[in-house]
Design a protein around this nucleic acid. Structure first.
Length: 939
RNA sequence: AGUCUCUUAGCUCAGCUGGUUAGAGCGCUACACUGAUAAUGUAGAGGUCUCCGGUUCAAAUCCGGGAGGGACUACCA
């Protein structure tokens, strides 16, 4: 009997599965997207609309992707997809950075070093193949993440056309007068006769002479005047700053003595002379020099002596005191001999003070012929000679041998040196690049805003950009320089274009194969063809010229660059400098940065710690959508924590979203919007309410997408599903859905609302849980496009009229009353009085305000509370047993219904069994089963 | 070591220009339902807002300092 009535209900029904089974289902959907050529269709659909250009920073083509890659690409995908929903034509062209040392090292492991085991040409070919394979590996993973983009036509910095445009970019920067030739110290193996990369250097212990050397002060009076000392007590004897070094052979290249500006120095009176050392190292030094009798006669902070001149110990040269934070009290005297041509620190600080980069040492490690005193000697054997000279000039305070860690060549196992070599630079100052770049920075929107201060401080402090590398796998610096004058060929712009055309045809190999006679003819004998390659940061730094300006559907400046915060030092800066140097403007209008992924405890992920979470395993276990949802739910501006628990919580959240969508779909299974859609003015009050709620939420969602605050979207949409839908709206309308006449207004009204909601909800979620949203899309009834990604924001939501009687405020009050009643019902339940809330009947005793509000729902109020009866009375009529609820002005009496339960709708009503054909039904159900259907107005 | 940055319940996040007992969802616990069912509903317990000072009638919110995490740079004559 009961079963018969069950068949008269409209129970939810859908094919949309409760379980996502994402690991399996996502790849299937991906295949569909691919077969349907979805990305192209989006381009066609949105062609001609306003553009939004998010330019992809190229990841380095080496290795499997890690979770940081996933974060970056997925955030980009959120933006591209949400911009599309907002009606923009937002193409996404992914790219890869393909040249450079890490790839060389991998290829070396396989086939040996270029120029040693294999020819450079063969080596480059192998690098190209290797990079290509890496691109394929990463590409597949990115696609699997659900990122929509022009995967069939990405940009690779090793594409011939790209390589040619790198060369053209170099030419343009040169024409704009920013290129300079200079010298810079690099790791140099005198046996190889060439520069070594950082990775080719090994550190081993080495014996070196450690010496303390006098640099006599030139103007003693001025020097003493700057330090604190007893008046008229200047001391006696020569006054010298003492430096300590383990590389005596670098003294010929000395151009300064560096002190720490913050450190305290002392002037010490010894037997017949005065010495200057750091106070903290005084005792150590005196002990080392075997000086027992001494006393301090003056104190001074390092910065006071800046620019004071000192006499070089054996050359006719006066060198300044300079200041540097690299000076420490770990060893020595606190005064550092500075030879900009022979040390990284020295070079940097030397640049600041404009010291010459003196390099008296040849490629073979032998002092050049014009080197006074030491010409023709090898640097390491010259050490002894330097000592002898110092000794004879009475400049040597102390000498001993020490054992210390020292860089060695990985091939020869011999000690290497720092040696300044000819390099190419983009000058920060020569043609005001620094100034221009700083100006350009101000035109850009930096998100978060501290990004601006960060890049500004880096620009202010950075040295010239050294763009040359002595490597094999890179874009060549296609310059011809005159053998005598070292000047660039006067026809360089034309020559570069000539070369670029050849590279376009054959790739960078075209340059390496090129015979200079081919381009220079008779002049060839006077010119050198450069073999240096470009820093790979140059490659990626000119993507605006090689991609944005080359592709028809793109443009420069881009609307947005989006990368990890480390790229302030990297790509954001290289791109800014390159673009400013070429076009006087930044290549981007806005820059958005995200933090790094860290573990549960906020610590960084590393293989050694074992706290790495590979995106591949997340996709395999929980699905790409869960990974994407995690990214959306996390505030990416600072560090992003990931752990199993966090992903588990995310997965819970995902299930809720999915189930909400499923219930909506199952409720409109028999709904055909073309014929069943109810006009807004005919909708029931509660149904209008949910449309208003959804409308308001959609506004918030759009704002959050516009401001890139995805975590708000997840929080708010989830909250909407749980509270507004699950806990209120859907809970209430279930009665109407299930028991009203299938085709009556009461039910179609609710279905109309749910239909609108699911249309909107699917779009809100589409940028984030793309697979799931597109899956939902297929189940929504009605004519629709092939994919949710071809859509814009849903426009079927309706805002309340501001003066409507049942407005937002009205329903807010209803909800607060409902919450209060729930609490009271729960008490009855825990006492065992009721189970289902339909066992209960309510008497509400209200003040005027609530009386008016609640009364408007008249006899439909019980549906709101899901009780079998709910009656409203004036507060004054409240009996003594009425309970004061948590809401002021509302008292309540809960009684257990004594009426029979209608087997169909489960309400306990007095009118159950009054109809002789339906003895188990209430009057309402009789009407719905055999009449023309009940009338509802509100709920 | 320097510069920048972050730190609100077990988890993920809100808390605007300082103002009543600091909010939400999840998770947890209990209960209910069995017509969203490996689902759903209801209720409850969870926080010295990283710590220490200061400004103020009043600070999670402003200022100073410390601790811890992260990014970048520097790693040595």
């Amino acid at each position: 009997m009961t079963m018969d009535y069950k068949k008269t209900l409209n129970l939810p029904n859908t094919e949309f599965p409760m379980k996502g089974n994402l690991a399996q289902r996502e790849p299937e959907r991906l295949k569909k997207w691919n077969e349907a050529n979805l990305y192209q269709k989006i381009r066609e659909t949105f062609a001609g609309r306003p553009q939004f250009i998010l330019h992809d920073g190229p990841p380095y083509a080496n290795g499997e992707i890690h979770i940081g890659h996933a974060v970056n690409k997925v955030l980009k995908d959120f933006i591209v997809k949400s911009k599309t929903l907002s009606g923009f034509d937002a193409p996404y062209v992914p790219g890869w950075d393909c040249h450079g040392l890490p790839i060389e090292l991998m290829v070396e492991k396989k086939i040996g070093k270029a120029g040693v085991k294999v020819s450079p040409a063969v080596f480059r070919k192998a690098c190209r193949e290797y990079a290509g394979k890496q691109v394929d590996i990463q590409k597949e993973a990115f696609i699997r993440l659900g990122i929509l983009g022009d995967w069939h036509n990405p940009y690779l910095t090793m594409d011939f056309a790209f390589e040619a445009n790198i060369v053209r970019s170099l030419g343009k920067i040169n024409q704009k007068g920013h290129i300079t030739a200079g010298a810079k110290p690099v790791h140099w193996c005198t046996d190889c006769g060439s520069a070594l990369a950082e990775a080719e250097v090994e550190y081993e212990d080495k014996h070196s002479p450690a010496i303390d050397v006098r640099f006599q002060v030139v103007d003693e009076a001025a020097f003493m005047a700057l330090c604190h000392h007893a008046p008229d007590y200047e001391g006696r004897g020569p006054l010298s700053v003492v430096i300590w070094t383990t590389t005596p052979w670098t003294l010929p290249a000395n151009q300064g003595v560096a002190l720490n500006p913050e450190l305290e120095y002392v002037v010490v009176q010894c037997e017949s002379e005065r010495l200057v050392v750091a106070e903290a190292l005084l005792k150590d030094a005196m002990l080392r020099y075997d000086i027992e009798h001494y006393h301090v006669i003056g104190y001074c902070k390092g910065d006071a002596w800046e620019h004071q001149l000192l006499q070089h110990p054996f050359y006719d040269r006066q060198v300044p005191i300079i200041l540097g934070d690299h000076v420490t009290t770990d060893a020595g005297t606190g005064a550092v001999h500075t030879a900009p041509g022979h040390g990284q620190d020295d070079y940097v600080v030397g640049q600041k003070y404009g010291l010459p980069v003196d390099n008296p040492v040849g490629a073979d490690g032998v002092f050049l012929a014009n080197t006074e005193l030491f010409a023709g000697e090898h640097v390491f054997t010259a050490n002894a000679h330097v000592l002898a000279v110092l000794e004879s000039k009475k400049k040597l305070v102390h000498h001993e041998a020490i054992l210390h860690s020292y860089p060695h060549c990985w091939r020869h196992k011999t000690p290497i040196i720092f040696r300044a070599t000819a390099q190419w630079f983009i000058s920060m100052n020569k043609n005001k690049l620094r100034e221009q770049a700083l100006d350009a920075v101000k035109q850009v929107e930096w998100i978060p805003d501290w990004g601006q201060a960060r890049i500004e401080s880096m620009l202010e402090g950075r040295p010239d950009w050294c763009i040359s590398r002595q490597r094999t796998w890179g874009v060549p610096i296609t310059f011809f320089i005159h053998k005598e004058t070292r000047e660039l060929h006067p026809r360089t712009p034309e020559l570069i274009e000539e070369v670029a055309k050849r590279i376009e045809e054959k790739g960078i190999e075209a340059w390496f194969e090129l015979e200079k006679e081919e381009l220079l003819g008779a002049e060839a004998a006077d010119y050198e063809k450069m073999t240096d390659t470009l820093d790979v940061w140059f490659d990626s730094g000119v993507t605006h010229a090689c991609v944005l300006e080359q592709r028809e559907q793109l443009r420069s400046p881009a609307d947005l660059y989006l990368e990890g915060s480390d790229q302030h030092r990297g790509w954001f800066q290289s791109s800014l400098l390159a673009s400013t140097a070429m076009n006087d403007v930044a290549p981007y209008k806005a820059v958005l940065t995200h933090g790094f992924t860290v573990d549960k405890n906020g610590e960084k992920m590393s293989k050694s710690k074992g706290n790495v979470i590979p995106p591949q395993s997340v996709m395999k276990n929980l699905g790409a959508d869960v990974l994407r949802l995690w990214i959306a739910s996390t505030d990416y501006r600072s560090e992003m924590r990931v752990s199993d628990e966090i992903l588990e919580r995310t997965s819970d959240g995902y299930r809720r979203l999915r189930n909400t969508a499923r219930f909506l779909l199952s409720s409109i299974n028999d709904f055909n919007p073309a014929v069943d859609l109810v006009e807004t003015q005919d909708l029931l009050a509660l149904d209008r309410w949910i449309l208003d709620r959804a409308y308001a939420l959609q506004e918030e969602v759009k704002t959050a997408y516009e401001t890139y605050q995805f975590q708000h979207i997840y929080q708010k949409v989830h909250h909407f599903c749980v509270i507004d839908l699950g806990g209120f709206y859907l809970d209430i309308i279930k009665d109407r859905q299930y028991t009203a006449k299938a085709d009556g207004l009461a039910r179609r009204s609710a279905q109309t609302a749910m239909y609108h909601v699911v249309e909107a909800l699917t779009r809100w979620l589409a940028p984030i849980i793309s697979y799931t949203a597109d899956e939902i899309w297929q189940y929504i009834p009605g004519e629709r496009s092939e994919s949710v990604f071809l859509e814009t924001w849903y426009e079927g939501l309706v805002k309340f009229d501001e003066d409507a009687v049942m407005n937002r405020e009205f329903w807010q009050k209803i909800m607060s009353v409902r919450t209060a009643i729930s609490k009271e019902l729960e008490k009855s339940r825990s006492k065992g009085d009721i189970g289902s809330s339909l066992n209960a009947e309510l008497e509400l005793y209200c003040n005027v305000e609530f009386f008016d509000v609640l009364n408007q729902l008249s006899d439909e109020l019980r549906f709101i509370f899901i009780t079998s009866q709910a009656a409203v009375f004036a507060e004054q009529l409240a009996p003594v047993e009425a309970i004061q609820t948590e809401v002021e002005g509302l008292k309540l009496v809960v009684t257990i219904s004594e009426h029979k339960k209608c087997v169909r709708c489960w309400h306990q009503r007095a009118d159950v069994g009054q109809h002789e054909d339906h003895e188990e039904l209430c009057a309402r159900c009789v009407e719905n089963v055999s009449g023309s259907g009940e009338q509802r107005h509100y709920a």
